[in-house]
Simulated scan of single mutants.
Amino acid sequence: MAIDRTLLWPSQSIPKRGPKPRMTLERIVAAAIGIADTEGLAAASMQRVADELGATKMSLYRYVPGKSELTALMLDKRLGAPPAPATAAQPDWRTALSAWTIEIHRRFSEAPWTLELAVGARVIGPNELAWTERGLAALTGTPLTGAEQLDVLALLSGHARSIVQQQTIVEPEHVTAVLMSGIIEEHATRFPYVAAAYASASVSGVRDDALHFGTDRILDGIQTLISTRTN
């Protein structure tokens, strides 16, 4: 069922005069986000949000038609707009997209429940669309087509999201190595490459760097493609 897109993209109307209502859409969304942050997305039901606000469930429907609209608003608000550029000078596309990927990973990491909502064909809110705008701006001037530029952003955001999904614990690779150390050593002849890789990582001290490693490798590939178009 299609959602009411006017909630995400309200028209610029003249503010109504009169006393400020006790309940607002902003309060409802903020309460739902607070519940999702502490208890998970499933807990942020219309009834739970109403209880949090000391209101009735039916009263919420005056402001938001249903859960689909509420979660769309929650995602856009919680993700937030991309940070403003530190300087007026536009960095090179690679530096800009690296920072873009690291920051969007941080935003999703702060609220992993947003991953479930940021998938599929849907009406995208202004904050989320601003991330796309910022990423495309970084690629302006490259020989990539519009479709290819969108694919670059899909690759980078998908990489960032997949790392968030893996990072349910801090330093998962290190923790796995600790938990599996005896087993890996005991079965080293059966899994020699696994044993060698973990041993090497232990000696080097470089672990759990898949976010930066993967981002750099994706950008390496894009740089190679751009080079073939410009030579």
Rank of each mutant, 00 (worst) to 15 (best):
Q223T: 04
D37C: 04
A30P: 02
A44S: 11
T6Q: 08
M180N: 13
P143T: 10
D92W: 09
P143S: 13
D216N: 08
T95A: 12
T228V: 12
L155E: 12
T114F: 05
E69H: 06
L136R: 05
L225D: 01
H159N: 07
R207Y: 01
A30K: 09
G34D: 06
R94S: 15
Q90F: 06
V203M: 14
E148T: 03
W100Q: 00
A118K: 04
G40H: 09
I222M: 00
R134W: 09
R207F: 02
Q165V: 13
A86W: 05
V206E: 12
T189V: 13
I33K: 11
L115M: 12
N127W: 06
E128A: 12
K57I: 03
A89R: 08
S227P: 00
R122G: 12
A138M: 08
S204M: 02
T24K: 11
T71W: 02
G18F: 04
S45I: 01
A177K: 02
L60D: 11
T145I: 00
A160M: 03
I124G: 08
P19M: 01
D151P: 00
L156M: 05
S11D: 14
L144N: 07
P192D: 15
R122F: 07
A177G: 12
H159G: 05
E186Y: 12
S181W: 06
S109E: 11
W131T: 10
R190S: 06
A44C: 00
R48F: 01
F108I: 04
V123A: 10
H105G: 05
P82M: 10
A2S: 08
Q47L: 14
A84R: 15
T230H: 04
L41E: 05
G125W: 10
Q165M: 07
L179M: 05
P19N: 06
G120C: 07
S162V: 04
S13A: 11
A43F: 09
G34L: 04
P21G: 11
L25E: 15
V203S: 05
S109L: 15
M58G: 15
A55L: 04
V178K: 15
S68W: 01
V152T: 09
V194A: 03
T224Y: 06
P82K: 09
A147D: 11
G214R: 00
I33Y: 08
A81T: 13
G205Y: 05
